[in-house]
Write a protein that binds this DNA or RNA. Sequence first.
DNA 1: ATTAGCACTTAGGACCATGGAGTGCCAGGA
DNA 2: TCCTGGCACTCCATGGTCCTAAGTGCTAAT
Lengths: 337, 337
Amino acid sequence: MLDERKLAVLRAIVEDYVSTNEPVGSRALSDRHTLGVSPATIRNDMVALEEDGYIAQPHTSAGRVPTDKGYRLFVDRLSTVKPLSGAERRAIETFLGGAVDLDEIVGRTVRLLAQLTRQVAVVQYPSLTRSSVQHVELVPLGQQRVMMVLITDTGRVEQRVIDGLEAVSEDAVDSLRQMLNRALVGTWLTEVPSAVEDLPGQLPPDDRALAAAVLSVLLESLVERHDEKIVLGGTANLAAMDLSASLRDVLEALEENVVLLRLLGEAGDPSMLTVRIGAENSHEGLRSTSIVSAGYGIGDQPLAKIGVVGPTRMDYPGTMGAVRAVARYLGQILAGQ
Amino acid sequence: MLDERKLAVLRAIVEDYVSTNEPVGSRALSDRHTLGVSPATIRNDMVALEEDGYIAQPHTSAGRVPTDKGYRLFVDRLSTVKPLSGAERRAIETFLGGAVDLDEIVGRTVRLLAQLTRQVAVVQYPSLTRSSVQHVELVPLGQQRVMMVLITDTGRVEQRVIDGLEAVSEDAVDSLRQMLNRALVGTWLTEVPSAVEDLPGQLPPDDRALAAAVLSVLLESLVERHDEKIVLGGTANLAAMDLSASLRDVLEALEENVVLLRLLGEAGDPSMLTVRIGAENSHEGLRSTSIVSAGYGIGDQPLAKIGVVGPTRMDYPGTMGAVRAVARYLGQILAGQ
DNA sequence: ATTAGCACTTAGGACCATGGAGTGCCAGGA
DNA sequence: TCCTGGCACTCCATGGTCCTAAGTGCTAAT
C-alpha cells in the first residue's frame, strides 16, 4: 500500500503543515521538497493517503492536512527524535544547575521546558511511593499536639500535625521517634505499612495511644498521594497556538490536576518517551492537543513524569528531543542531590 | 458639574455595559432604567460626562462606554459592596471547612474565589515575616548533615538541609536545639535576627561552627522571602472575558509571580478592599484588567493578600463582596487552626 | 430645563464578482 | 505499468458596494 514515496509525501505534508499552518497542496510540495516527481504524481499519492485516512481536506479545493492517524504514523515511523543543540544543552545545565531545594528544581524545570518547546509544560513531583524513608521526626508542640515530619531520600518533606492528644510526654515522643527511625529508615515508602504493623505491640501500654495516632497519620500521608502534585508553566503559549477546540476547554482541563495526572499516568513504559495525539487523549477538552511525556528517575528507578501539551500540529521531533533531554537532566540533578 | 442625575446616568451606563457588553445608548438607558427623563435629556448629560472623561464613544454613531475614570467614580461613589447571598456564604464555609493543612486551605481558597467571581483568583501565602516562631527542630542526618525545620504559628513550615559539616554530635545538636527554642519560641520572625545575635558566644567553642552554620541558614530562610508564594486559579475564566489586550500578554503577566506580588503589594491599607482599574495597574499586560484585592490576617495582624483579576468591565460590587468575604473567612480559618 | 423632531454619521451585514489555489481525471509518453 | 502535462471544475478568500439599524448632535418648541 504505502511505498517509500507515499511515506515521503506524508512526511513532507506533516513538516510543511507544521511550519506553515496552512493546508499544503501538491504544487507547494513538489516545489519545496525534492521528491523527484511532478505535482500530478503527488496528487495520486495523496488520494491513496487520504483513502487510508492519513490526511484530509478541509474542503474540496484546499490542500491536505494530516489527520491524527497521519501524525501517529509520522511519529512512529517517519521521524527521529531531534537532539538538542549545544546551546540548548548548556541552557539546561545552567538553568537547572543553580537550584537548591526540590521546589526550586521543579519550578525551574517547568519554566525551562515551556521555554524550550514554546508550549505548555507539566512537571510532576517525584513520587513519594518510589522513594525511601530518610528520617522521621516527631516534634511535640505543647501538651496536645505533635508534629510529624517525614523526610525522603528524594528530598521530599511531608509534614503533619497530630492534634487532640492528651498529656504528651517528651519521653514517649523520644522513644517513639527512635523506634520509628530504627524500623523505617531506608525502607521504601510502599513497605512502610507492613514495616509498621506490629510496632505498637512493642510499646508499653501507656504510649500506645500516641503511637497509634502518629502511625495513622503517617500512613494516611502515604495513602493520600499528596505527592501527586503537579506544576504547570508556559500557559501563555496557549494563546499563540490556534487550537480548534475552545481555549476555555483546554485551560479547564489543564487546571484539573486530576486530569493531567491521569493523562501522564496513561503513558506507557515510564522510562520511555510517549506521545498521545489528538483524540488518543481520553479527555474531551484535549482532543485537539497532543501530549508528549517522559518519565524521569534516579538510575533506573522511575520517580514521576514530565510532559508538554501543545497543538496536534506541533514539531514532534523537536518537542520529543526537548522533553527527553530535560527528563534526563532532571534525573541527574535529583541523583546528585 | 455632576448633579445627581448625571451620576445616576453614569451608574446606569456602567451597570448596563457590564451586563450586556455593548456600548449603551440613550434610548436603551431610558427604557431599562427609571430615570424619569427622555433620551434627549440623557444625551445632554452624556455629553457632559464625556467632556469630563467618564465615558467615551468607540466611534461616532455608537453608544457610550465607561472609561477607567468612569469605573473609578462608580466604585468610589456610586456603588456599595454587595454582600454575598446565604447560599454563597454557606458554600464558603463548607468548602473551606474541610481543609487540613495550609496548602490545602490555600488551594481551596483560590478555587473558591475563582468560582464565586468567575474570574482569575490569586492567593498569596501567609507572610512568614508577620508570624512568630512556634518551634525550631534540628535533625541530624548522618555525620555531615543537619536538617533544620522552622515551624510558625500560621502553620507554615520551612525546612533546609545544612550540608558540609564535620563530625556532628547528637549532644551538640541537642543543646543547640534547646538554646534556639528557648531564645526564639514566640518571637516574631522579624525579630529573629537580633534575638539570635549573641547566641554563638554562649556556646562552648567546639559547637560554634555548627551553630554558625545553622544560624546562617536560618537567617537566610527568613530573608529569602521564600514565603512570598502565590497560587493562581480559574485561569480558564480568562477565555470567557474579552479583554482588549492580547490574551497572551495577560497570561504572561499572571505567570510572573513577581509581577503579581508587586501588584498585590501596591494595594494600599492591607486591611482594606482595594480596586485597581485598568491603566492604574503599573504592569503593561494588565492595562485592560482590573484587580480587586483584600488583605487577610489573624485578628488585626495582616498576613498577606488575596485578589481577583478580571476585565475592567466587571461586576465590581459583586466581586468586591466575594473577595472581602473570602478574605475574612480565610483569616478566621487560620486563626482557628 | 426638558423634549420632540430631524439630519447626519458609522459599523456591520448582505450580496456579489473575481482571482487564485487546488483538485480529479484523461490521454499520451517512457 | 507508472508517470506527467493539460484541462475543466470547485471552492474559498478577498474586496467592493450597498443598505440598514442604531445612535448621535442640534434646533426649535414647550
